[in-house]
């Protein structure tokens, strides 16, 4: 505890840096995944290829990916952009499947009705398909958020500051309190992000709140998803 007291400023700064490292990949990854997911869902033949190839991206070990980024992007070795781009790739790898599943989960009757009412293709996408895939997109985004927050720690290995610094520094100097503080801080950020996403969902998708039994089931399912996501 004494370590934490004397290093509160450092931990707070690292938490802010860590968050600033995580937020762009989550948002950009989401935005990139929607059109790709739309294509995968719209053209059934492409679906298998897109989902497998992008899914495989997630299996690329993170340290080599971080190290190769400057070679691909031409960025300086220590630029945080390397980590942001790599995390965005992981976010897309996870999110595309949710985007495709989400768009595919929209009731065909509702789409047919929307067309019959006189929605143009563009209006139907923005006003019907996208909002109705919201619950599945949100579940996917929660997984992406947890995964990104945990992966960002590895940035410290290649010299891009994040909460991972506390692990490396704590291990090298044998200060268990520092490592523990790092773990708790990462968890804290992951939980806060998750709560914010759930809150956002309540605001944007007020219609999706179900009665209790159905809701309990959905929550259980997304919890499992978050756990598997964080574990992989």
């Amino acid at each position: 505890m004494r370590w934490l007291e004397s290093n509160l400023g450092l931990v707070w700064d690292l938490m802010l840096t860590h968050m600033s490292l995580c937020i762009p990949p989550i948002i950009i990854g989401f935005l990139i995944s929607i059109p790709i997911g739309w294509i995968a869902n719209r053209y059934r033949l492409t679906r298998g290829v897109i989902l497998v190839v992008l899914g495989l991206l997630y299996t690329i070990p993170s340290i080599p990916l971080f190290i190769f980024m400057p070679l691909i992007l031409g960025t300086p070795q220590l630029s945080s952009l390397n980590v942001v781009v790599a995390l965005t790739i992981y976010a897309v790898a996870l999110m595309v499947r949710s985007a495709s599943d989400g768009l595919g989960s929209v009731d065909k009757d509702v789409l047919q009705a929307a067309s019959a009412m006189g929605y143009s293709g563009w209006q139907r996408f923005w006003r019907v398909e996208l909002p109705l895939s919201g619950p599945v997109l949100l579940a996917g985004l929660r997984v992406v958020s947890a995964s990104t927050v945990s992966l960002a720690t590895i940035g410290s290995v290649i010299g891009v500051t994040s909460l991972g610094y506390l692990f490396i520094n704590g291990l090298q100097r044998r200060i268990p309190a520092e490592v523990l503080t790092g773990i708790v801080s990462v968890l804290l950020i992951a939980v806060v992000f998750d709560l914010l996403l759930v809150l956002l969902g309540r605001l944007v998708l007020p219609w999706s709140r179900r009665d209790r039994s159905v809701r309990a089931k959905t929550v259980a399912r997304s919890r499992t998803a978050v756990l598997t996501g964080a574990g992989s």
């Binding site: 009757d109 509702v110 047919q112 009705a113 009412m117 109705l132």
Partner: peptide
């Protein structure tokens, strides 16, 4: 389509509206 009314089975209502 906008000038022809359409009613379908299972209502086809927009669940989010």
């Amino acid at each position: 389509r906008r000038r022809i009314g359409y009613v379908m089975q299972n209502s086809g209502l927009m669940p989010h509206r």
